[in-house]
């Protein structure tokens, strides 16, 4: 579904990504980890077409990313940014409905999508509230609902790609688990997901594959048990870590020190 081949990205004389290659099939979840400034957000913005690669090739569904028109791209690719400010008193319902902007699917279909994504992100009880008055974690779930609404239905666009920049950073652990489970269910419905996460244990638990970035280049990539190693953690963060196996999920868990 997504093919990234030998991509370099530079902006303002600074190299953001170098020699990055990976591919992702529909239904797969790729977690991107790495230190601050490693290029994780730049990668997401490159995948949605904000930064044009200086070199290399990005293909979505077999076609070059640049060949997609604005509308078609918006129907297939959605990005949840790390932070976004909305100071106008829209209701939560209206914010989520903005996700349907690129579609001409009609009010009835749009309503159904909005119902579904609000239930999936546990914001049903917030729908009549004004967005600027929500807490940080509530806002994050509303924005997630908005980007889910954008690419929710397989019938709107066959192959869909969801890009998430730290979707659980402001959430309590209950909602972290809920959101990661709903993302898994969404991927299982035929979408590819690229998610930037700071919590490596959470990433390892919820991703099919992982990509470890530092200074814009891949330090390691593969299945979580191959990527999450003491050696990789040291190369990524210059810090000692202890890697254990979760007693129930059997996925790697990283402890400091």
């Amino acid at each position: 579904m997504l093919e990234v081949a030998d991509v370099d990205v530079a902006r303002g004389g600074r190299t953001l990504l170098r020699g990055l290659s990976f591919h992702l099939a529909a239904g797969e979840r790729l977690a991107v980890i790495g230190p601050n400034g490693a290029g994780k957000s730049s990668l997401l913005h490159t995948l949605i077409g904000d930064h044009a690669p200086a070199r290399g090739d990005i293909r979505v569904g077999g076609r070059p990313l640049t060949a997609l028109g604005d509308r078609e791209r918006a129907c297939r690719l959605a990005l949840l940014p790390q932070a976004s400010t909305l100071d106008f008193p829209f209701t939560v319902d209206e914010v989520v409905a903005l996700g349907r902007t690129p579609h001409a699917s009609g009010a009835v279909a749009d309503r159904a999508v909005i119902e579904a994504v609000c239930a999936a992100t546990d914001i049903d009880h917030l729908r009549r509230r004004l967005y600027p008055r929500l807490s940080g974690g509530e806002k994050q779930r509303v924005q997630l609902a908005r980007v889910l609404a954008q690419i929710w239905r397989p019938e709107d666009a066959g192959e869909r790609l969801l890009l998430l920049d730290e979707p659980v950073a402001a959430l309590d652990i209950g909602h972290q688990a809920l959101v990661m489970d709903r993302i898994a269910a969404f991927a299982a419905g035929g979408a590819a997901v690229v998610v930037v996460l700071h919590d490596i244990s959470l990433a390892a638990r919820h991703a099919d594959r992982m990509l470890a970035l530092r200074d814009g280049a891949a330090v390691a990539q593969g299945v979580p048990s191959d990527v999450v190693t003491v050696d990789t953690m040291r190369r990524l963060f210059d810090a000692d870590a202890c890697v254990m196996t979760h007693p129930r999920t059997h996925t790697p868990v990283v402890l400091h020190g």
């Binding site: 913005h45 949605i48 904000d50 604005d70 509308r71 791209r73 918006a74 129907c75 690719l77 959605a78 990005l79 940014p81 976004s84 400010t85 909305l86 106008f88 829209f90 914010v95 903005l98 996700g99 902007t101 690129p102 908005r146 954008q150």
Partner: peptide, 20 residues
């Protein structure tokens, strides 16, 4: 109107929603 609504979310958010 729809483009303006999307713009309230932010410029890159509006672009990602297909607004030129």
């Amino acid at each position: 109107a729809n483009a303006l609504n999307a713009l309230l979310l932010g410029e890159s958010e509006a672009r990602h929603l297909g607004v030129a």
